[in-house]
Design a protein around this nucleic acid. Sequence first.
DNA 1: ATCGTTCATCGCAAATATACGATGAATAAG
DNA 2: CTTATTCATCGTATATTTGCGATGAACGAT
Lengths: 115, 115
Amino acid sequence: MAEHKKHLFDKDEIDIAEVAKALSHPARLKILRILSQMNVCMCGEIVDLLPLAQATVSQHLKELKRVNLIQGEIEGPKTCYCIDTGSIQKIFEKFQNYFNEINRESNRSCKTKKK
Amino acid sequence: MAEHKKHLFDKDEIDIAEVAKALSHPARLKILRILSQMNVCMCGEIVDLLPLAQATVSQHLKELKRVNLIQGEIEGPKTCYCIDTGSIQKIFEKFQNYFNEINRESNRSCKTKKK
DNA sequence: ATCGTTCATCGCAAATATACGATGAATAAG
DNA sequence: CTTATTCATCGTATATTTGCGATGAACGAT
């Protein structure tokens, strides 16, 4: 009954939605900020800065990596994470295009110029 | 055990995450596109353009309205929806600032300039 | 007043997401 | 080889999201 129907939409919309989903949790937004300030960072350092358990942070990092917002590289027992600058640039451009598209200024209004 | 911890983060991050969540479903992205093309639109018209039931579309519209991406105005038995241009502008600026913040170009890399 | 149209909301089922303890893999250090 | 450290993954519990049928509220038309 609740079978999901996301696949019935345009690839463009599915792609943007995927990234938006990755950005839809404060912890992940904060992780990106942390990584942008530290250039490079171990998972443990991030855990220390968040009110979440290590397993949870690891999951969030995995999700960010999945949509290419960050890169991760195993270095022995540690894993080094960093922002994926190039990829973020491209992703932001997609968002920008989408916003421009839906926000063409025009005579739009709900009949009576509401509020 | 799985009690949510979103409230433990900064207001800024919570706000952006809320909007990102609203944009994290292809149906909602498509609804925004439809509204931007039609200027003004009844719920029924949107239902006809989506592979979803009326109740589901109504829910998506409610979510978009909640974060001020759209406005809705009841007109007798119908409801007239439209893009909230001003609000979207502000929302996009927040995204823009966030992206700029996390994407300051620098000597960032996972040690060995990966891939 | 009755009927048809339009849509929001309720109540439910299924799917996902969130969170974490426990475990184990990988390596560095001894 | 043993131990300690770092982290990914598994299993599980709970919360939230998604989707829809059913219902009812609000009107316009008759």
